[in-house]
Computed example of a mutant assay.
Amino acid sequence: MKYTSKIIINLPREEVIKKLDNAENMKHWQRGLIAYEQQDGTPGQPGAKMKLDYQIGKRKLSMIETVIENNFPNKFHTTYDAKGVHNIQRNFFNIVDENTTEWVSESEFQFQGFGMKLMGWLMPGAFKKQSMKYLNDFKNFAEKGESVAQ
């Protein structure tokens, strides 16, 4: 399953990248994030791995983020691996004008196992909705300082 999400952030690209490229800020825009831990490599550099732990309702979810390409401020590509799911994220940060940035996020989900493949086929809207929720939460954090941290 592949799709693209976009959002306009009313900040200069340099400010957007500064807030995005700080792991301490993730808790403010990634709902449910309870912990993260650098596993391997230099943070933010290709090959670096970080374990992310989430609490989503009563369910706990762990995934490994691997940096594929870091060409900030233009683009940042990663993969996320969790049980039954491999997610490729290609993120592009375009200057609209000196005070406005467009974040374009291309998502590709590869599912393993019948159950996960079925969920991806039956519920693509849930994945798209979650991607937009993260983008909107980041926008609100970056522009207004609003945090989703509990």
Results as ranks from 00 to 15, higher is better:
residue 77 H to M: 02
residue 29 W to K: 06
residue 12 P to T: 14
residue 66 T to G: 07
residue 8 I to Q: 10
residue 140 N to C: 06
residue 62 S to C: 08
residue 40 D to S: 12
residue 103 W to Q: 04
residue 45 Q to W: 02
residue 131 S to I: 07
residue 2 K to R: 13
residue 8 I to G: 01
residue 110 Q to G: 02
residue 85 V to L: 09
residue 44 G to V: 08
residue 42 T to W: 00
residue 91 N to H: 02
residue 54 Y to C: 01
residue 104 V to K: 06
residue 5 S to N: 12
residue 118 L to F: 08
residue 19 K to C: 04
residue 131 S to D: 14
residue 136 N to G: 05
residue 49 K to M: 10
residue 89 Q to G: 01
residue 100 T to E: 12
residue 58 K to D: 15
residue 92 F to E: 08
residue 60 K to Y: 07
residue 95 I to N: 06
residue 65 E to S: 11
residue 123 M to Y: 15
residue 94 N to Q: 10
residue 72 F to C: 01
residue 110 Q to H: 10
residue 56 I to N: 08
residue 116 M to W: 09
residue 62 S to T: 13
residue 136 N to H: 10
residue 89 Q to V: 05
residue 125 G to A: 13
residue 101 T to Y: 02
residue 60 K to W: 03
residue 132 M to G: 03
residue 38 Q to P: 04
residue 150 Q to D: 14
residue 32 G to M: 10
residue 91 N to G: 06
residue 10 N to H: 14
residue 101 T to H: 02
residue 45 Q to F: 04
residue 97 D to A: 08
residue 36 Y to H: 08
residue 82 A to C: 12
residue 32 G to L: 07
residue 91 N to Y: 02
residue 7 I to F: 04
residue 123 M to P: 02
residue 60 K to I: 11
residue 128 K to V: 15
residue 26 M to Y: 11
residue 71 N to L: 10
residue 114 F to C: 12
residue 37 E to P: 00
residue 110 Q to W: 01
residue 79 T to S: 12
residue 85 V to H: 06
residue 108 E to L: 04
residue 128 K to N: 05
residue 22 N to K: 09
residue 59 R to Q: 14
residue 34 I to N: 04
residue 28 H to C: 07
residue 56 I to K: 12
residue 149 A to D: 11
residue 50 M to L: 04
residue 144 K to C: 10
residue 32 G to W: 03
residue 86 H to P: 01
residue 61 L to P: 00
residue 104 V to M: 05
residue 111 F to H: 09
residue 129 K to Q: 13
residue 70 N to K: 11
residue 127 F to C: 10
residue 43 P to Q: 12
residue 89 Q to A: 07
residue 24 E to K: 12
residue 52 L to H: 05
residue 85 V to K: 01
residue 145 G to H: 11
residue 7 I to M: 06
residue 66 T to E: 15
residue 104 V to G: 01
residue 110 Q to C: 03
residue 86 H to I: 14
residue 56 I to T: 10
residue 146 E to G: 06
residue 43 P to W: 03
residue 52 L to P: 00
residue 45 Q to V: 01
residue 76 F to G: 00
residue 31 R to A: 06
residue 63 M to K: 05
residue 57 G to L: 09
residue 98 E to T: 13
residue 112 Q to E: 13
residue 122 L to R: 03
residue 127 F to D: 05
residue 86 H to N: 09
residue 64 I to T: 14
residue 84 G to H: 04
residue 33 L to M: 14
residue 149 A to S: 13
residue 100 T to P: 04
residue 68 I to Y: 00
residue 80 Y to H: 13
residue 8 I to V: 15
residue 147 S to H: 08
residue 55 Q to E: 14
residue 119 M to S: 04
residue 2 K to N: 14
residue 73 P to L: 15
